[in-house]
Design a protein around this nucleic acid. Structure first.
Lengths: 347, 347
DNA sequence: GTTAGCACTCTATTATATTGAGTGCTAACA
DNA sequence: TGTTAGCACTCAATATAATAGAGTGCTAAC
């Protein structure tokens, strides 16, 4: 599609612009990147590239800047693989070495790590992991007329909720209900909790219909896939180091986006279907507020199944090669850590 | 300490500066605030006020700006009480009306509410609430060699952790342990879990020493006061509307602070000893990074005991009267909501 | 097809006035 | 003695003009 020289010119433009944040001109290319041709020739090539939509001019007689399309071509065809330095790898490993008991803690740490290494903003997303099968329920008496339902799923997710109960119900009643539910629902997934089963339970616990309904509500909700989605951010302020965010207005729109977990998870969620690292550039993100940002992301998971995603958010001018390497390295490690932490679950 | 006219001049300066963010001059005061004296007289007063340290000049021959000390005097002696509009009160009530089951959800909502009404950044802090007494423990089998300890305290806080257990221990063993622990520890606070009691339990469950230790760890940690502290932020980007944050450097230091929960909770924690609304201005915050910010905060609680705090963070030039009113109104409402949500607990 | 040369464009930078709000001081006034 | 008008002075902010410099597109020669 593009001849070798055009590729080289485009590559030079992208690399230089990523490094300097300044529009790059023909002269610079000729000097820094030895293509063996004169600036004039490069100018001709640049005119062609511009016409093809790979680069653009901020204004007449400035240097050229890659367009979204140009970055896309770079990422798909020109980018050279990078590796982390040994120090950096060590840093990652260290960060995961310190023992943690909590999935949330791991993900928080991942967010910080990502942004610390790259100086971009990190977004870490978990979905409900595990197969959504029931493991344990406990209804605990908390005071007159109040109880707490605690539910544990096979993935190790714990959900709890305070519910009102009739004053006449005592701790022992709740215990009985818990026992029956545990017995009947053991290992069942939400789909497999069939109507007959529920009827059975209702029959057995006819008197506690009200309590039962609320408990079933929580079970239903907890085992449904969407629940338990959570977003962790790291290094929000890091992105302010990028010159493109020296304008406070831009910072504002970005922050307002980052505050909305829904939007963020929508962006990252796209990655679950893909394998490996996904790069989404500028308008491809399909979100007005970050139309001049890019995201480099990948999913992490257990046994090959994604349970969440991590992403690096930067300006479209971000260092894709590096972000790619970091995201790749960290997802694979994170997957390992998650597997270790939740090993044996969901069999 | 200050005669009536000086007070009036200081009041005028503070009010005008809060409203306009521009240094205020003698002429403006004479025109806008009818003190019945000429600019020249006001200039003399201003010279005095400056010498006393209540106001300062950004540079020779600019208007005057209140100093931290000036704001302090304003807040302590000059500020007029404000009330929320009916619409705003309705907004608050509405926000708390929608039913929620989860304390976290309430606090998150409070953060958003605070920042939405005031356009400042909201910080909401919870501490471990309740008396720190034990309510229920459950150890659940999660797979070979793995179990989950779930602990519920009287405050309704739920904590959980995955632990390794010997492969030989099965679901039933864990159940037994749970039962014994529940029976022995029922209603005990961490202080009251005496050594004799622990020995008793160990004796009874001699074979499961390992599991027991880990469970006791979690109990200890959960019932200790510090645990369960959590910070919710609302409207981070709101503060960027303030002209003092048009400088990206400032935004950066502020954001880097907001990302560190520890620092934030240190700031807010100070409020637990005080009653009512506390205002901390500039250097009083004793934190280099926000030395030109102020915080208006108060604690919310149950039965008069604080269980957390809310704060509004703005530039020192913030609208104290309004922030005061909002914080006051919302804490009292929040306290009610929390009591309703956790009613009957900890008796 | 490539390149040197050159006129042209447009931003960024620097230098230079100009404006205007505000002050402090002095001297007159009640 | 406290208040006020008047005035010279200061200094940031704004506007204006001049200059420099990077880069382009085009043409003509190689």
């Amino acid at each position: 599609m593009l001849d070798a020289r055009k590729k080289n010119v485009l590559l030079a433009i992208v690399q230089d612009y990523i490094a300097t944040a300044e529009p790059v001109g023909s002269r610079t290319i000729a000097r820094k990147y030895k293509l063996g041709v004169s600036p004039a020739t490069i100018r001709n090539e640049m005119a062609d590239l511009e016409e093809m939509g790979f680069i653009e001019q901020p204004y007449t007689s400035a240097g050229r800047v890659p367009s979204d399309r140009g970055y896309r071509y770079y990422v798909d065809h020109l980018m050279k693989r990078e590796e982390l330095t040994l120090d950096e790898e060590k840093m990652v490993l260290n960060s995961y070495l310190t023992k943690v008991q909590d999935v949330g803690e791991v993900l928080r740490r991942t967010g910080n790590l990502l942004s610390q290494i790259t100086n971009y903003t990190a977004v870490v997303l978990t979905t409900h992991y595990g197969k959504g099968t029931f493991r344990h329920i406990q209804i605990i008496h908390m005071g007159p007329g109040q109880a707490m339902v605690v539910l544990v799923s096979d993935s190790g997710a714990v959900q709890h909720r305070i519910i009102d109960v009739p004053d006449t119900i005592g701790p022992d009643d709740l215990d009985t209900i818990s026992r029956v539910l545990n017995h009947k629902l053991q290992g069942k997934s939400i789909k497999n909790i069939r109507l007959t089963l529920i009827k059975e339970i209702y029959f057995e616990l006819a008197r506690q219909k009200h309590v039962l309904n609320m408990a079933m509500d929580l079970i239903q909700e907890s085992l449904t896939v969407k629940t338990g989605e959570k977003v962790y951010l790291g290094g929000i302020f890091n992105i302010l180091n990028q010159p493109e965010f020296h304008n406070v207005e831009k910072v504002k729109t970005l922050l307002s986006l980052l505050e909305q977990e829904k939007e963020l998870s929508n962006i990252i969620e796209g990655v679950f279907d893909a394998r490996g690292v996904t790069v989404r550039i500028g308008e491809e993100l399909d979100n007005e507020r970050i139309k001049d940002c890019s995201v480099v992301m990948a999913s992490y998971g257990m046994d090959g199944k994604p349970v969440g995603g991590i992403g690096l958010l930067g300006p479209t001018r971000m260092d894709y090669a590096r972000a790619y390497a970091v995201v790749e390295y960290i997802t694979s490690n994170l997957s390992l850590v998650m597997e270790r932490l939740l090993r044996g679950r969901g069999k």
